[in-house]
Amino acid sequence: MNDWIDIAPVEAVPQRGARLIKTVHGCVAVFRTATDEVFALDNACPHKNGPLAEGIVHGASVTCPLHNWVISLETGVVQGQDEGQVATYPAKVSDGRIYLGAAFLTRRAVA
């Protein structure tokens, strides 16, 4: 089995935006920054499960649309006064396409 799953061309996600990926265990949000880095995180804010994919992306952070919690895309850690962490998954851009680490699917399946 391949280590990386080919998801889509990078242009399919808007810069400073996100799209969703459905898995059996729930939705994962794939983010693309202004500098074309990609990140994959659970699409649920640790606060009230807000859909992070709908948030405003700035730098390497996203702001949850429900109550403005700011989450690091790199670590999933909540920034500022609030506390919490979102699960993150390996993601990369190669030859203009977005890849997610395959292991995360099985790991999620086990968990």
């Binding site: 969703l20 939705c27 699917l105």
Partner: peptide, 14 residues
Amino acid sequence: ETYQPLADLTLEAA
């Protein structure tokens, strides 16, 4: 199409 999920991996995982 931009309102749809980017990918559906539910089958792949199965």
